[in-house]
Design a protein around this nucleic acid. Structure first.
Lengths: 139, 139
DNA sequence: ATACATGCAAACACTTTGCAGCACA
DNA sequence: TGTGCTGCAAAGTGTTTGCATGTAT
């Protein structure tokens, strides 16, 4: 019987483990400050100078859709990435745009408090706290 | 005594009431679907064809900072504007990007539940519910 | 009269995409 | 050995800015 490739493994799409992808993942895991794609690019480039921005963007996308990293979509700013993958909330600095994790219980039943969502089928939420980060408070 | 302009009125910066600004405000007030700047531009252009995008952007900024309209900064999408200026929450359609108001009590004391915000001075928050809008549910 | 506002175009920040060649499985 | 991935460049989207001119007050 000729089984072509690995027809049994339907759990994950065929993806390749390239050096670039591994370096991108490693960079996000090592940077605990919600790096932007530009931050990741700079770090990866130290070890792999020829990598292109497009590859970083593409791999951040792949890793995020796999759940290996968390994409934090910041209003009016570059996306940021988080090595921490449990659902949680973020604080955004109004002044410098820095993002931090916020330690607060996850509100699993928040949508229950919604009285009317104009017919939307709500399946998730995010909370972004706004304020000033420690260093911007001092200025 | 020569009082130059209106030196007594220190409450508001000197702004001019231009046709363009009035039309932008009117457009946001008439569009109850959280228009983007592009939507506003299109509407204003019907009556004032020569208006430039830059003027629309500048006026939306002025009106938002005055509090005449509410700017809704959507992650990964164009800013949207709301004629409704009380604090409230929004729902974002994952599929088409449409934004709707959500009827839910405003959580004035939400920040009290934060155990640790890494030293951030939190002064506000936003909640964005995510899901599918009515028309995208049917597809 | 003067300074804020406009229109235009260019620049900007961030991200995606088309394509030819490369390399992992 | 094939197709997923890469690097490059170009294009795309949304927004801001420099500058000369215009206009509300």
């Amino acid at each position: 019987m000729s089984v072509t490739t690995n027809a049994n493994d339907t759990t994950r799409a065929a993806t390749r483990n390239t050096i670039q992808r591994a370096l991108v993942l490693e960079a996000v895991r090592s940077l605990h400050n919600h790096p932007t794609s530009a931050d990741v690019y700079e770090v990866v480039r130290e070890r792999h100078p020829n990598i292109s921005r497009a590859t970083v963007y593409r791999n951040l996308g792949v890793l995020a859709s796999r759940g290996d990293v968390l994409r934090v979509e910041v209003p009016n700013g570059a996306d940021r990435y988080d090595f921490f993958n449990e659902p949680h909330y973020h604080a955004l600095c109004r002044s410098c745009g820095q993002v931090s994790d916020v330690d607060m219980p996850y509100q699993n039943d928040l949508a229950d408090q919604v009285r009317d969502a104009q017919g939307f089928a709500i399946d998730g939420h995010q909370i972004i706290f706004e304020g000033l980060c420690p260093s911007c408070q001092k200025r």
